[in-house]
Each structure stands twice: as structure tokens, then as C-alpha cells.
């Protein structure tokens, strides 16, 4: 993963309002043994270890026997031919149609 595509750093360079935003992580939980990890949602964390802590607190609330995976949203490469988005088609490999995943010059209005 290159630093420039991380949402955190992209946001940091954008506007003062979003400076210091923790990057977005996707959370996968194995509900019980024998099952696959399943995507349950996302959260913010400053780094991988904090993301694991947060995932445990937020998505498995208390004490359950589970296994967690976390991964930075910006590290996921996506392919979904069915979801057509011309805006980002040339680099359409991100999980979200998510403007902050892309460096946009500060002087572009309404972004």
C-alpha cells in the first residue's frame, strides 16, 4: 500500500476540518469455529493494533469467543463488474466510491 492512497493521509492534505482523521478499517469476524470470517462493518483507528482493540470493543462488544481480522479499507482491491461507476472506472479497484480515497487538489470546488 502506498502512503498516498491511505484515506488518512489523503484527508490530511485536504482541508483543516478533516485533519487528523484516523484511517478507516474494515472488520471481519469469525462468529464461531468452523465459519468464515465475515465482514461486519468498519471503524476508525490510528493503526492496526488499535484497530484490533476497537474491533473487539465495537463489534464483539463483550467477552464473546471470536476471531477478528482488520484491514485498512484503502488496502482492499475490489472488482465488481456489476457495479458500474464511470467516475473512478480507470482506477476502479477500491471498495467504496469514496472521494477521500483519492487525492483531489484543494482548489477544486465542491469536493
Amino acid at each position: 500500500m502506498s502512503a498516498e492512497t491511505s484515506p488518512g493521509s489523503a484527508a490530511a492534505g485536504k482541508t483543516p476540518a478533516t485533519r487528523g482523521e484516523w484511517p478507516l478499517y474494515e472488520v471481519f469476524v469469525r462468529g464461531k469455529r468452523g465459519l468464515n470470517h465475515v465482514h461486519v462493518g468498519s471503524l476508525h483507528a490510528a493503526d492496526d493494533q488499535m484497530a484490533i482493540h476497537h474491533a473487539r470493543d465495537v463489534y464483539t462488544r463483550r467477552n464473546e469467543g471470536v476471531s477478528l481480522w482488520v484491514v485498512r479499507s484503502s488496502s482492499i482491491t475490489a472488482s465488481s463488474p456489476d457495479e458500474k461507476d464511470p467516475m473512478f472506472a480507470p482506477s476502479g479497484d477500491k471498495v467504496y466510491r469514496h472521494p477521500t480515497f483519492y487525492d483531489i487538489p484543494a482548489d477544486v470546488p465542491h469536493m
Partner: peptide
């Protein structure tokens, strides 16, 4: 525990 969110995961998966 009888109400753990992991139950929800199973449902969400479906």
C-alpha cells in the same frame, strides 16, 4: 452469554 453480537453476524451473513 446468550445475546452476543456474533449471533447477528450469522444473520447478517445470510
Amino acid at each position: 452469554m446468550t445475546n452476543e453480537p456474533s449471533i447477528h453476524v450469522d444473520h447478517d451473513e445470510a
